[in-house]
Amino acid sequence: CHSECLGNCSQPDDPTKCVACRNFYLDGRCVETCPPPYYHFQDWRCVNFSFCQDLHHKCKNSRRQGCHQYVIHNNKCIPECPSGYTMNSSNLLCTPCLGPCPKVCHLLEGEKTIDSVTSAQELRGCTVINGSLIINIRGGNNLAAELEANLGLIEEISGYLKIRRSYALVSLSFFRKLRLIRGETLEIGNYSFYALDNQNLRQLWDWSKHNLTITQGKLFFHYNPKLCLSEIHKMEEVSGTKGRQERNDIALKTNGDQASCENELLKFSYIRTSFDKILLRWEPYWPPDFRDLLGFMLFYKEAPYQNVTEFDGQDACGSNSWTVVDIDPPLRSNDPKSQNHPGWLMRGLKPWTQYAIFVKTLVTFSDERRTYGAKSDIIYVQTDATNPSVPLDPISVSNSSSQIILKWKPPSDPNGNITHYLVFWERQAEDSELFELDYCLKGLKLPSRTWSPPFESEDSQKHNQSEYEDSAGECCSCPKTDSQILKELEESSFRKTFEDYLHNVVFVPRKT
């Protein structure tokens, strides 16, 4: 048989008469490798580009789960590009990614509803959504962080984005990388972005840091009482949809009607710091009717980097990364020049730590249904340095008659930039024990000054392991946590139920 035959053949030295091919099969003959313009397919066939392209389009058009959109890589027609490569849609070739590779997620039936953290986790790592997304989240724990972890990498949506009755959302900033909504599939009414009845939605994105392009379709905003109209108009300008909307697409009466839409800028007039305090004062603000001013709200939190936005980490279910302080308005003076500047002394802060701070007014709604208010920009203030805590785990070892090696770990709280350490030492008198000992005694162990690591005695271990207080009263049991108490109650309830079950099964009433 021919060298490319495997198993047997019907005619000697003829690659077209093989029972099976050793390498690849091409047009009725066995070959060692697939010549151009053919590609290896499933490690035994040679196919042309049209064959591989037909497989790709067949799966793409069917949208069946589990099928493969075949691509070409290293002269092979394979189910998908290997790690580190992405497909070129024009020629199906796998090309190296520039940075992290995109991950295209194809949605069944063309859309997916995100109504819980669990459903959001199914899209973790996706960068391109081939379909439409509907966000409908009523509640949950730590929602802002969970949504950002699972949806934060999405850069492109081919269909539309719909935010509907998501009472738990305060902001859409968890879509931190969303840059493009194509609108290839539109919501009824030709809408590519749809926001309806979101009672706590206050911000779409921080438009000073976020760009969003909507290729096709219109915007729809109705019944978002805490979303200011200025935020919607800003989205029109940034996304390129200005002029597409009709009169009733953006409701003037049901958007922002319960919001404090600040239209003035508060400026800080005085800032002073110490290692654990920050004193702030800002310019006074009074609405047209000074009785509408209820006070100020001061927001602050630790910020290692200057990239904080107002609604980071917030949701309507209680999660809030900001510390909020309510401040009463100052006494009002008739003389504008003698107006008191409101302020606040922030206490209990960490030394040498940068804080993000902003302040906003708290006002009631005027009778004319106009909203007044003022808010400052987010500023960054760093507390002063102070003395560091003591170095940890000092170790001293003498390696000769004239040297001592000293080692330690950095302090747990540096409280500033540590530039150097101060080492103090003092000579001590020799131990009298060394002169009084009889060095001729056998088995004498000389006193040693070398360091030995501390260890816990058996008594201390027994005390720590004991669940009861000892007789001397030195140790006591740790208080039980809520989960331990709940577990004990469940076990007790189970024992009672099981005992009742045994009584009912074992003891049967005697027939009379």
Rank of each mutant, 00 (worst) to 15 (best):
R369E: 08
A145T: 15
I357R: 00
N141Y: 12
S260T: 09
E264H: 05
Y160W: 04
G152P: 00
N200V: 13
T215N: 14
R247E: 03
I232L: 13
K350Q: 14
A195H: 05
T254F: 08
L331N: 06
F311E: 01
A149P: 04
A303K: 01
P336Y: 00
T309A: 06
S166M: 11
S401E: 14
M235P: 00
T185D: 10
Q382L: 04
E262F: 08
P288I: 06
Q354E: 05
E283Y: 03
R202Q: 01
S239I: 15
T353P: 00
T254W: 12
T361K: 04
L201H: 00
L180F: 12
R164V: 06
F296R: 00
D312F: 08
N334M: 04
G373T: 10
P351K: 11
N190I: 13
G189Y: 15
T118V: 04
T185K: 14
L172K: 00
I157T: 01
A385L: 03
E246Q: 15
L219N: 15
H341T: 09
E368Y: 11
P336S: 08
I357S: 02
V381T: 14
L406T: 05
T113E: 13
S158L: 12
G373D: 05
L266W: 01
P329Q: 15
L172N: 01
D335V: 05
H222R: 11
V238A: 05
G140Y: 07
S338A: 11
Q216M: 07
E148S: 10
L362P: 15
D206R: 03
E237H: 12
G110C: 02
S321H: 10
G217S: 05
L298T: 04
T273F: 07
W286Y: 09
G183N: 00
N387H: 14
Y270T: 01
F311I: 15
S389C: 06
V397I: 09
Y194F: 12
E184F: 10
I154C: 05
A374R: 08
S269C: 11
G313R: 07
R347P: 09
G243P: 02
M235F: 13
E368R: 14
L107I: 05
Q216T: 11
L265M: 15
K267I: 15
E310Y: 15
S132N: 05
K360L: 15
L161V: 05
G313Q: 11
L123V: 13
L147M: 09
I188A: 15
A251V: 13
L294K: 13
F193M: 12
T118S: 05
A149S: 05
M235R: 00
D257G: 04
A144D: 02
G140M: 01
L172Y: 02
G110F: 08
L153R: 07
L252E: 04
A374T: 07
E109W: 14
S260L: 12
D335H: 05
H233I: 11
N248S: 10
E187L: 07
T323V: 15
S119W: 04
N387L: 11
L392Q: 07
N190H: 04
S166A: 05
R176A: 05
E111R: 06
L266I: 07
E262T: 04
G243W: 07
Q258D: 15
P336Q: 10
F296S: 06
N150L: 05
A356R: 03
I188T: 13
N307P: 07
L186N: 04
V128T: 10
N263G: 15
Y305E: 04
G313V: 10
K337S: 04
S338G: 04
S274Q: 05
R179G: 15
P391I: 05
S171H: 15
A195F: 09
F174S: 06
S269P: 01
I137G: 14
G159P: 00
C228Y: 03
N198D: 02
P330G: 04
E155G: 14
M235L: 12
M297T: 02
L153A: 13
H106L: 08
A251H: 14
N399H: 12
Q339P: 08
E302S: 10
D292H: 13
Y194C: 15
L172R: 00
D367R: 11
N387R: 09
A149R: 10
G348H: 13
Y167K: 15
K234E: 14
A316L: 15
S319C: 11
N255W: 05
F221A: 13
E283P: 08
S166C: 12
D289K: 03
T118P: 07
W207S: 05
L178M: 09
C261E: 03
S173Q: 08
D326S: 15
E148R: 13
D249Y: 09
I404Y: 01
S116Y: 05
W344M: 02
N399I: 08
L147C: 02
P411S: 14
E236M: 04
V381F: 02
L293H: 04
I278N: 00
S338Y: 05
L123W: 04
K253P: 06
V117M: 12
F221P: 00
P287C: 10
S132Q: 13
Q382K: 10
N130C: 01
F221T: 11
I327K: 02
L107M: 08
A168R: 15
S230Q: 00
I404A: 03
R176Q: 14
L293F: 05
S402T: 15
V397R: 05
K360P: 00
Q354T: 05
D367Q: 12
D377A: 06
S173D: 07
P288N: 12
T185S: 12
G110N: 14
I379N: 13
K103D: 07
W322T: 03
